[in-house]
Amino acid sequence: MERILFGDNQFFAVNHISDEKSRAQSIKFKDDQAIITTLDEAIGAGINTFMCTTHDRIANICDIIRANPDKYRDFKIYPCMPYAHKYANAVTELGIAGTLKQYVPGNFLGSLFKGGIAYLSKDYLSIMELLIDSEMKMFKGINTPVIFLQNVITDLLLGLKANEIFVAFHQYIRKKYDAEAGFITMNMPMLLDVLQQGGIENPVICSSINKAGFRMSGGKEIYEKTLQTKKIRAIAMQVLGGGAIPPKEAIEYVCNLPNIESILFGASSKGNIENTVSNIHHFDKTRL
């Protein structure tokens, strides 16, 4: 993985601290061209990996990338699935079974919902595989070396102790897409233990890691200890703690932690992208 990964929250009005900023972002990135312009600015600053949700609009971005193979030759995408709000809103409206009916492709589920039919538990993993394939369709022909499970799903499964699903996800991503499985979580130390117990060595885990301890469940100390003592390929996100920490201080903290392979951030302006990149390079060089 590259040291710096570019995120997509800003493109889809995801802002953890302000609804107003979120609307401003929605307006700014109304057209796909605005997203491409910002991606090009990130590439200009030396970032060649875009980590993004499987939002409908990413399909358009993928079309543009495929249409310009020379320009995007070294460009990689790390898909993060599923785009949770799509399913969450559907579950509110249609229920769990109704949502699966709507999103699982083909007639696969028809027999499952007619009731009374015994089905094997491996069918759940088949449903998962079908959902992965349907989410991955938009990335056809694009280099996707790491494929992530989004935090809402990861953490839901973690709480339910459905640990086998993680292993199945990991295996399927490797087998079908020749890629590494990644996991986004808000509960990194707990997840790492579970993945190791499941035989997934040195897993790619993306989680909030910041000086303020924001969204670091169980506390910052447990995270720091985990990074120091365990085998993990960590990606730090929310390094600015939702804006609570001054940028330089924030980057300095993350750059000095062990085992952080990559830093994920998103920004809307060229200036902010360049500043963050230069801060990371600076603190990587002066690392204690």
Binding site: I17, D155, M186, N187, S217
Partner: peptide
């Protein structure tokens, strides 16, 4: 004031 200043950390986070 932002939620980041006003939130107490939890032991397990979901949503």
């Amino acid at each position: 004031k932002y939620i980041t200043d006003l939130t107490e950390e939890v032991d397990f986070y979901l949503r």
